[in-house]
């Protein structure tokens, strides 16, 4: 599994344009709203989540045939799935770290550690989310559009609306509220619970769907024949 992760990292590092987008897009989102700081942080986090999820989508879709081939010769679908996820998270967390530093340097936020928390939870959800979308919508373009719609909804829907809770990154919104505004820790709790649930769901769905897709058909070995005297 570690090898898959390492090779996955190498592969990601060669997708220069995609990495550039991952780095720059959240920054753009952030700067656009920098004057309204509670929105700025939320936009930053959602932008980061979207970028990582899209990277995950492309990574899983692009690797589908290779993963299938590896599975045929005996690789475990679990190792393939989690190895790739690990590579994605390992790419996303340092970026989140960078943005955390940026926010710390440019904003005055009452509960700064919570910002770090919410950036991390966003990355952790985005990676399997991208994988799930790739399994449901197996083409890059359609998958990217699907993710775009989810993100757009995430940005537009009023977070207090009950319908908002079905969106995957609702926890990000809650945690950002906790970080920025002087609200009680029930926001923190709700946010973390939602995060935990969504993460578990995405990971389980992604993992089981990937296993179903990749696991080769179980074929019995031909029966060993009785002793043959010589070549015919």
């Amino acid at each position: 599994m570690l090898t898959v992760a390492v090779t996955g990292l190498r592969e990601l590092s060669r997708r220069r344009v995609a990495l550039l987008c991952v780095l720059v897009l959240p920054l753009v989102f952030y700067l656009v709203r920098i004057d309204v700081h509670w929105q700025a942080i939320r936009f930053l986090a959602l932008g980061l989540g979207w970028a990582i999820a899209t990277l995950a989508l492309f990574s899983h879709v692009g690797a589908r045939r290779l993963d299938q081939r590896l599975a045929v010769v005996g690789a475990s679908p679990t190792a393939l799935f989690f190895g790739r996820q690990l590579a994605l998270v390992a790419t996303g967390v340092p970026v989140a770290g960078m943005y955390f530093i940026l926010v710390a340097a440019t904003q005055d936020v009452p509960r700064l550690p919570a910002v770090g928390l919410l950036l991390t939870t966003t990355v952790l959800i985005a990676a399997p989310l991208g994988a799930v979308v790739s399994l449901v919508v197996p083409r890059e373009l359609e998958g990217a559009l699907a993710l775009l719609s989810v993100m757009a909804l995430q940005l537009l829907v009023d977070p207090d609306d009950t319908a908002a809770r079905i969106l995957p990154l609702w926890s990000t919104r809650e945690l950002s509220a906790y970080a920025i505004e002087a609200v009680g820790s029930d926001h923190l709790q709700r946010g973390l619970v939602h995060f935990g649930l969504v993460l578990a769901m995405c990971v389980l769905t992604g993992w089981s769907a990937s296993t179903v897709r990749l696991a080769p058909v179980k074929l019995p070995a031909p029966p060993v024949e009785a002793d043959r005297t010589s070549a015919s």
Binding site: T7, R10, E11, R65, V72, V73, L219, P220, P223
Partner: peptide, 25 residues
Amino acid sequence: TVERTPRLGYAPQEHGVSPLLTAAE
């Protein structure tokens, strides 16, 4: 029915190889 030994090598026609990785990888 298909019966097949488990020790198998497989080279598909397309996409058997990842374009972003080196041979060594």
